[in-house]
Design a protein around this nucleic acid. Structure first.
Length: 833
RNA sequence: GCUGGAGUGGUGGAAUGGCAUACACGCCAGUCUCAAAAACUGGUGAGGGCAACCUCGUGAGGGUUCAACUCCCUCCUCCAGCACCA
């Protein structure tokens, strides 16, 4: 009978559905395993990236299930967001209907691929039963001051007509539509993720099973730096010192004696005061006006010339009482540190360029050990390395390695500075002027101010049939019925917040909701979360290395603070509130070295592959073609190899009968080797799946075993226990990869139950043991012979055998044997001189 | 610039101190066929040799070692993330 995947696959998909084979139920007598793939945005069609992500996950989920774990493997949809809204603008469609339709299509596709999801646990973030808990979480944060409103300059995407988080600005463009991002002054909702900076950084140490690059990326993003806040005194209009302080942050307090001017960010609040009435006033105002019009892209691109103006005011360098000018320049950022810096042109390249441009004074205070330059005028660039302090009063002669600490301590003692820690991480901007998102549950009352919606009034339902034009701010701001409401406190007339939440909010806790997706009494059922969490294995794209994973960690820590979860008693050893034990970031799927995209017209549609080869072949190929973490190139021809292999396996089961009641002659060398191969394959495949995600080499090993079975069969030894064991092993080992075909073959060889009720094979250590080993014989490190010898041969005999080989003898000849190195069970190296 | 990762046959890739190129794609030859496809069998890093074998070979150069794709140093190239963070 021919292998016809389409028939087989439909049949088993129906069987799994009917027998609820993938249902996960809390059960304390089995070890749990929570395997999660990042849930998709419901665009309506799966692309190869999804297929790869979910296939990798499915292989591991099915493997763990066969190993006897109670596996939770859920799927859902990150269903709010702009594509639905854009579709609504374009086609005048209803985003809810559009989204539901897309979800239905995607669910069907995923079922066609045979993924082992527990469909009873499906969640979709656009449903009120999900987003009410977004609102609940927001209110908990609001109560604790972690959600707050603030007017500030925000990133504004003119095309999407909405604000963007810093994290959503990529190379100065909108992360979604790539339009140039502008700056706009708006009142916005923020989450105070910065309160968690220290914990988010510290707990990265617990994530031993995360790829190091993801940990590093998060470390850099959080960006902790140690330094000193130094207090410069402001001078009055006549140039005399006052008691007003300008604090500046530096990590290079060792260069303070070389600070020859101060630079303020153009947005610095002090500027207006110090320039008023001075001759420079207009020039400075003009400059600030000019900078404010510039987008962040222009302002922060490294190759642009640094621009600035003198403010007319002066300050006092507290270490030497020098009067130094105060400048305003675009290269200083208001968001970082204090928005003011001390400029040390000799030891900071940016300051160096700026001072050359504007002819500002400079002085060397750190001596470059490899250079003889002592005059700053001779420098071609700033020296940013370590060295000996010069021109630094009592610190002259001290090396940077000690002076940093000494100067910091001295400043604290003199009360002219304070050791400070600075973070790069900013608070998270979450409000969006969009329709298709969770309404922020806030009410504005003229009497009571900003009031949270009471818990019992949740959810605040997103109104339907709203005109979505894509222009002029939030669509909700035009829905009077939605806006007008009563103040929960004073019952007077009030207005609702019309902004919605960024969708990253929705995805920051969905993994917790999966534990009890239908729970109505709270955000999640504590008992279920206590059992299933943390996620044992999380799989998704590297593009989420920072945002999604950082936000999820933040939310989990917040839930811990609320007393809703605590993982510290778990064996996972990832602390009390880290959500993901292991992380696998799968690589992208490319076509001829390029990203698949509609615009390039090189998209491979999974459906056409299924039509041609069936889903098992597609799954096998996508796993076999490259290691999961690497990018893989989709090769239309190479998939034939996977198809051919599955046919070979199918024919094996189809053409031969493996009754297994014919005992084998143990002394038969071929059969003995086959048994050895069978068991070493079990070991290899199990290790590859359990330890390092070497899924591609797991397949290679199984292919080798199949080749070995064919080799034995070609010698006409079809019907005996050893061959039967080998074939059964192949079927079992293939089950996680090609579940449909494996089920079919499992029945074919006489089994009645689902193969996923069978247990994963265990290898017999005795069977792997070899009597004889092929020893490598080297002379001076070069292979000159190989010889089959008993494993337990003693060293003298081994040496003698090696030297007896004619080719070895030729190379040793009459030369002096210096020594003979023996690596047990592997090789002999004869060193001659 | 900083941080992280990678560089191996014609191609995807394997080997983490011990036979470099497992497994697969492609290609070549053969079997079957009127023919083709499919399937099956064999071959396939480069160079030399009738052969046994020999030399070279994992981005470049150096080093450690009996032995290096693997460890160390210098450099080159590519990819990714961050980037005026004081």
């Amino acid at each position: 009978m021919k292998y016809s995947p389409q028939k087989i696959e439909k049949k088993w998909q129906a069987y799994w559905q009917k027998n609820r084979i993938n249902q996960a139920v809390l059960s304390k007598d089995k070890p749990k395993y929570y395997l999660l793939e990042m849930f998709p945005y419901p665009s309506g069609k799966l692309h190869m990236g999804h297929v790869r992500n979910y296939t990798i996950g499915d292989v591991l989920a099915r493997f763990k299930k066969m190993q006897g774990y109670n596996v939770l493997h859920p799927m859902g949809y990150d269903a709010f967001g702009q594509p639905a809204e854009n579709a609504a603008i374009k086609n005048k469609a209803d985003p809810a209907k559009w989204t539901k339709q897309c979800i239905d299509w995607m669910r069907e596709e995923m079922q066609e691929m045979g993924f082992s999801y527990d469909w009873d646990r499906e969640v979709a973030t656009y449903l009120p039963e999900y987003y009410r808990w977004n609102q609940w979480i927001f209110l908990k944060m609001f109560e604790r001051g972690l959600a707050y409103k603030k007017e500030s300059l925000v990133n504004w995407c003119p095309s999407c007509q909405t604000t963007l988080a810093n994290e959503e600005v990529i190379d100065g463009g909108c992360w979604r539509c790539h339009s140039k991002v502008e700056q706009k002054d708006l009142e916005q909702w923020y989450l105070k993720i910065t309160d968690y900076s220290e914990r988010l950084l510290e707990d990265l140490k617990l994530l031993k099973y995360w790829p190091s690059r993801v940990v590093t990326m998060q470390e850099n993003w959080i960006g902790k730096s140690f330094g000193v806040e130094i207090y410069f005194r402001l001078c009055d209009k006549g140039g005399r010192p006052t008691d007003r302080i300008i604090p500046v942050f530096t990590t290079r307090q060792d260069t303070i004696f070389g600070a020859t001017y101060i630079v303020l960010a153009p947005e610095h609040p002090l500027i207006k005061e110090i320039i008023s009435g001075s001759p420079q006033e207009n020039k400075v105002l003009e400059f600030i006006e000019k900078v404010s019009k510039e987008t962040k892209t222009i302002r922060t691109s490294a190759d642009v010339k640094k621009e600035g103006v003198f403010s007319g005011a002066y300050a006092i360098n507290p270490v030497n009482n020098e009067k130094i000018p105060i400048w305003v320049a675009d290269y200083v950022l208001m968001e970082y540190g204090t928005g003011a810096i001390m400029a040390v042109p000799t030891h900071d390249q940016r300051d160096f360029l700026f001072s050359k441009e504007h002819n500002l004074p400079m002085r060397i205070v750190i001596k470059d050990p490899r250079s003889s330059i002592i005059d700053a005028r001779e420098m071609n660039e700033a020296y940013e390395g370590d060295g000996i302090q010069v021109n630094s009063a009592q610190f002259d002669g001290v090396h940077t390695s000690q002076s940093k600490e000494k100067i910091a301590n001295w400043m604290e003692k003199e009360k002219i500075g304070k050791k400070t820690v600075n973070w790069r991480l900013r608070d998270w901007l979450i409000s969006r002027q969009r329709y298709w998102g969770t309404p922020i549950p806030i009410i504005y009352c003229d009497q009571c101010g900003i009031v949270g919606v009471p818990e019992e009034d949740l959810p605040v339902i997103l109104p339907q049939k709203v005109a979505i034009t894509g222009k002029g701010g939030s669509p909700l701001s035009k829905v009077d019925k939605f806006i007008n409401c009563k103040c929960p406190k004073c019952k007077g007339k009030a207005r609702r917040e019309t902004d919605t939440m960024a969708t990253f909010f929705d995805s920051s806790w969905y993994f917790l909701r999966f534990c009890s997706p239908k729970y109505a009494k709270g955000v999640f059922d504590k008992e279920e979360v206590d059992y299933w969490m943390p996620v044992d294995q999380y799989i998704g794209g590297i593009e989420h290395a920072i945002l999604h994973l950082l936000y999820s960690r933040f939310f989990t820590k917040f839930f811990n603070d609320l007393g809703l979860l605590d993982f510290s008693k778990k064996e996972s050893n990832t602390g009390k509130d880290e959500p993901f034990i292991r992380l696998l970031t799968q690589g992208m799927v490319l076509k001829e070295g390029e990203v698949m995209s509609k615009s390039k017209g090189n998209v491979v549609d999974p459906d056409t592959i299924i039509d041609k080869y069936g889903t098992d072949t597609m799954r096998l190929y996508i796993i076999f073609a490259a290691p999961p973490e690497d990018q893989m190139d989709w090769n239309e021809r190479a998939i034939e190899g996977s198809w051919r292999f599955l046919n070979r396996v199918w024919n094996l089961v189809d053409n031969y009968e493996f009754k297994g009641n014919v005992p084998s002659a143990q002394e038969d060398k071929e059969l003995k080797e086959l048994r050895q191969k069978t068991h070493s394959t079990i070991k290899n495949v199990t290790d590859d799946l359990a330890k390092d995600f070497h899924l591609n080499t797991a397949i290679s090993s199984i292919m080798e075993l199949v080749n070995a079975i064919y080799a034995v069969l070609s010698k006409n030894q079809s019907n005996n226990q050893i061959v039967k064991e080998a074939v059964e092993t192949v079927v079992l080992l293939l089950a996680p990869f090609v579940p449909h075909l494996s089920e079919e073959m499992w029945q074919k060889i006489g089994r009645k139950e689902s193969i996923f009720k069978a247990s994963w094979p265990k290898f017999d250590a005795n069977a792997i043991k070899q009597d004889a080993i092929t020893f490598i014989i080297q002379v001076n490190g070069k292979v000159r012979a190989t010889m089959e010898l008993p494993v337990d041969i003693d060293e003298e005999k081994l040496k003698a055998s090696a030297l007896a080989d004619s080719n070895v003898a030729k190379w040793v000849q009459d030369k002096m044997i210096k020594k003979i190195i023996i690596v047990p069970k592997k090789l002999v190296n004869i060193v001659v001189g």
